[in-house]
Design a protein around this nucleic acid. Sequence first.
DNA 1: AATTTCCAACGTCAAGAGGA
DNA 2: TCCTCTTGACGTTGGAAATT
Length: 375
Amino acid sequence: MDTPVSPQLDSSLNDSVTDGEENHSETSPSPAAPPQVPVVAESPGVTVVQLSDSQTVQVQGVIQAPQTSVIQSPQVQTVQIATVAELEDDESVTDTQKRREILSRRPSYRKILNELSTDSPAVPKIDEEKTEEEVPVSSAASASVPTSIYQTSSGQYIAFTQGRAIQLTSPGAEDLQGAQTLTVASSPTLQPGATILQCAAQPGDSPQQYYIQGGQVLIQERAGRGKGEGERDVPVKEGVKGRRGFFFVLRCFAAVVLDYWKEEMAVTGDETESAATGDIPAYQLRSPNSGLAQSIVMAASPGSMQSPSSQHAEEITRKREVRLMKNREAARECRRKKKEYVKCLENRVAVLENQNKTLIEELKALKDIYCHKAE
DNA sequence: AATTTCCAACGTCAAGAGGA
DNA sequence: TCCTCTTGACGTTGGAAATT
C-alpha cells in the first residue's frame, strides 16, 4: 500500500529523516503522490490524512513543536499508516457517510494557529482584526474592518465591514477624508421597499440617517429628539455639500434597494429557491483585489403591488438573501484564513527542516570530535 | 488557432461549535 | 434551545498552460 502524503510534508519528512547518518525508514514515501491531500482530522501529535480512495493515513508529528535534540527526531517523524478498511468494517455505510464521519470538526484555523503560536513564537498569530494588505481603503478612518471591498465604475470604493457598516471612499483619498461610514438598518418595522442608511461623515460624528425609498434618498431632518417626532424626509440632491461622489453612490445604492424591493414584491414562496440563481440581472461591482466581478444579485423586475399574503414569503426571501450573502463573505474569509494557515505551516516546516539539518550537522561534528578524542 | 487540461476561486449547502 | 459562525464538500466558472 502506498502512502501518498502531501508533497511538501512528504519531502520534509524525507529530508528530516534521511539527512542523518542512520536511515530511520519507517516512512513509506510514495513517488506518485497526488498533488493535494486533505488533512481531515487532527489530534495532538497525530494528523489524519484523507486519501482519495477513502483511506486515511495517520501522520504523526508532521508539525511538532521544535525539537530540542536531534536524537528525538526519528521517532517523532514516524509515519503511521492505517487504512479506513482496517478501522471500519461497516459495509452498510456509504462512502459519503464514511467520509462525513471521518471529517470530524476541528477548531478554526485561527484557533489552531494561535495555539501553535503559544507553543512556538515563530508562528505568527492570525489576528481577527487583521485587514487584507491589498485593501485600498486605508486604515485611518474607521475602527471597523472591511470584510469585502468593491469599486464602482466611478472609481469609488465601497467596503462592507463587520457590523454591517458600509464604508465609502473616493479614489486617491489616502487619508480617508472622503470616507463615509454607513450602517444599514434592517428594521422589521420598515415600510416595504424602504431601507435606512446611517452615515457618519467622521468617526466621531453623530450619524445622519438616510431613508431610501422608491429609488430616492431622503435625509431625515429632525425637529425634536423624540422618536419619529417632527421628522420629515428631504430628497437628497447630487452635489449637496460638495459630496457629489458620495451621493452618486448613495443614489446607486438607492436604485439597488429599489430593485431589490421590487423583486421582493414579485417573488412568491415557490420562487424563493430560484431567486438567487435564476435569470435575474446582477449589479456587478468590481473588486479591486481580484479584478473579478463580485455580484450583488438583486433582481429588477416590474414592480407590483404588494399583497399581504406575500409578506411572509418576502421576509423568507430577504432572510435567505442575507444568509447567503453572509455565508458568501464567510466562505471567502475562511478561504483566506485557510491559505494563511497553510502558508504558516509551510513556513514552519521549512524552519524546522533547517533546524533539523543544523542539529544533525552539529551532532556529526560532535561525534567526530568525540571519536578523535577516544582514539 | 482551436481544443483540452489544470487550477484557483467562487457560491452554496450542510453540519458542528459555541455563545446568548 | 436557538442563532450565528466556521468550515468541509461539491459543483461551477474562468483563466492560464499544455497539447493537437
